[in-house]
Simulated assay, not measured.
Amino acid sequence: MDQGPTLTERDRRALGPATLDLATAFLVCRPGLLDRVQPESRTRMLLARIDHFIDANLTDRTLSPSDVAAHHHLSVRTLHTLFRQRERTVSATIRHRRLEGARAALSNPRLRTLPIRAVAAQWGFTDATLFSRTFRVTQGTTPQGHRPGAALPADGRPSAS
């Protein structure tokens, strides 16, 4: 409130929807108010809850779109429809976030001695070979090549194989 007068028009445009969503999230906890919420705000709040659920359950090897839909009392079809406005499908989102977690773990020098298959399993990948192949395709290097201190070729760049 104190900084309101110093905000630029761009700041106000960016903060407006976020403030409205925050207020809406607070108010929908009150009985009978959910029906008054704009559909776009309801969708954003639902997607935020879905994102949080996915992030909190990435290490569950069985996490699937069916689990996500059931937890949020949605049909799988409705869940997929919600994700059409996004860059990735539900399954691709889960896979991408698992890969990001595994990439961060492999980048951590303190975890250097942890076997790659253990890192993969820790992030919900059940098949170490599939993990390595997917990691290489998405990251441009092998999981081993991504680790700190991995041997680099003469050109100084990690191998893509």
Rank of each mutant, 00 (worst) to 15 (best):
Asp2Trp: 07
Gly4Asp: 01
Thr6Pro: 00
Thr8Ser: 13
Glu9Asn: 13
Arg12Cys: 12
Gly16His: 14
Pro17Ala: 10
Ala18Phe: 04
Thr19Trp: 10
Leu20Pro: 00
Asp21Ser: 09
Phe26Cys: 13
Phe26Ile: 15
Pro31Leu: 07
Leu34Arg: 15
Gln38Gly: 00
Ser41Gly: 02
Ser41Cys: 01
Phe53Ser: 01
Asp55Tyr: 02
Ala56Trp: 07
Ala56Ile: 00
Leu58Pro: 05
Pro65Gly: 14
Pro65Ala: 13
Ser66Met: 08
Asp67Cys: 10
Asp67Met: 14
Ala70Arg: 10
His73Asn: 13
Leu74Pro: 01
Arg77Tyr: 01
Thr78Ser: 07
His80Phe: 06
Leu82Pro: 04
Phe83Pro: 01
Val90Ile: 15
Ser91Leu: 09
Arg97Ala: 09
Gly101Thr: 03
Ala104Arg: 02
Pro109Thr: 13
Leu111Gln: 09
Pro115His: 12
Arg117Asp: 04
Val119Arg: 01
Val119Gly: 00
Trp123Asn: 06
Asp127Ser: 15
Ala128Trp: 08
Leu130Pro: 01
Arg133Phe: 09
Thr134Asp: 15
Val137Ile: 15
Thr138Pro: 02
Pro143Gly: 12
Gly149Phe: 07
Ala150Gly: 08
Ala151Gly: 05
Asp155Thr: 09
Gly156Pro: 05
Arg157Ile: 08
Ser159Leu: 10
Ala160Met: 07
